[in-house]
Design a protein around this nucleic acid. Structure first.
Lengths: 221, 221
DNA sequence: CGGGTAAGGAGACAAAAGTCGCAGACTCCG
DNA sequence: CGGAGTCTGCGACTTTTGTCTCCTTACCCG
């Protein structure tokens, strides 16, 4: 199975390339299917391929010695991961796990090097992607350093709602997953959700969290 | 005053360029002197130049609404900063302040764009620098998320000692500065230093901190 | 050299977060 | 359908961190 054309066309890496150039690059990708909960990459291992997520959802995370988990980002279709080791030759900085059955498209390190040589525009695109990534990381540091758990939770609820629909997030996150995203324990998420509910910002129902007062959440962030 | 030659020669941005190419680039830099405690960049403002630190020391940091400060990195001669806004056109992601009288060399956004176009090797160098930066940020997130204050403090004590000499760090950090680096309050740093002292890892003297038992510190991290 | 400012030490207390234990509800698969 | 495993809720308790206040010391600048 080849890479879906629109994945290459919409990828920030290949913007500014001619269609025939893109066609050539398509052939370098290989497809890989992963099932839910499958670990795609382990932190510390050598990273020999860059991946673009086709369908599904994948989390990038680090694990502490005590088993605590910190999610660095949750990816959706079109997002790419594992670039850093491909470009600098070091080990994977983080692990990757599929949150649902997913299809990813990989490209080997050597091929990436060739592309960089042959298409200078791609290098510039990579720089732009990395810039965005750095801003996101600064934002994460800021959250961890400045905001309390409730504010961090409010933030991901807002982001989540934006992406999956205001009223009923289709694929909801478990409290455990939210805890890993904001760097705290599951129980804290439970308590904070209750806080947000009693202050009237959200309503927690059977299987979903409904944002009742978006402005209130926004103010907390 | 032109840029010192060795600054360009040792800069990771210009590695792989021919000497005469470097010479051409030198002319694009402008010099700027800043005095201790002077703010060089404000977060949120447009970033129109990339800087390389010639002499002195500069901290990159973010400030919360409540006035708390989180240091992202402390730079030394040769380090560069404010790349992200130059490459993606957005606002400065963080502020920069001189910790001592310093001399920096800047290059304007437009010139950087030209360099990227004319010297593809530079783009690849930038990618490598950004990769390193991303790894550092992941490491910072990990520290904030996984480690207690004492462990974070131990880490910067070790890094500091490596860089400034085992026995007597020449330019010591204040507790306030250390607190901002590890994302906590000054009082916590004081208490943690005392902890480390009573457990025999360090000795706190008049104006300096002496590492008595390096392995003990290392184990804490 | 003297005075103002920054830095550091300490104790008491408050707030936030983490931990533990357990029980009930749900769901996913075989 | 049933049972294992996951997810959630909740309360009690501990630990860690943050905050406030006050005092002493060091140091820098004029």
């Amino acid at each position: 199975m080849p890479v879906p054309a629109e994945l290459i066309e919409t990828s920030p890496y290949f913007s500014g390339l001619a269609p025939q150039e893109r066609d050539k690059l398509k052939g370098l990708f290989f497809e890989k299917s992963v099932s839910k909960s499958e670990v795609i990459l382990w932190e510390g291992e050598p990273g020999d391929a860059l991946y673009i997520l086709g369908t599904g959802r994948i989390k990038i995370f680090r694990t502490s010695a005590e088993g605590k988990e910190q999610v660095l980002r949750v990816m959706r279709a079109g997002d790419s991961f594992n670039e850093v080791p491909v470009f600098d030759g070091g080990p994977n900085p983080a692990s990757a796990m599929a949150l649902e059955d997913s299809v990813i498209y990989g490209i080997h390190r050597g091929d990436v090097q060739h592309i960089l040589k042959d298409y200078p525009q791609v290098s510039i695109n990579v720089i732009r992607v990395f810039s965005r990534r750095l801003r996101d990381m600064v934002s994460l540091v800021e959250d961890l350093s400045f905001r309390h758990v409730t504010a961090r939770l409010a933030k991901i609820l807002l982001e989540h709602a934006v992406q999956f629909g205001e009223e009923s997030p289709e694929r909801r996150l478990t409290q455990q997953q939210m805890a890993a995203m904001i760097g705290t324990a599951r129980e804290m998420v439970g308590r904070s959700l209750k806080n947000l509910e009693t202050m009237g910002a959200i309503r927690v129902e059977r299987q979903k969290i409904i944002i009742v007062n978006r402005e209130m959440l926004q103010r907390l962030v």
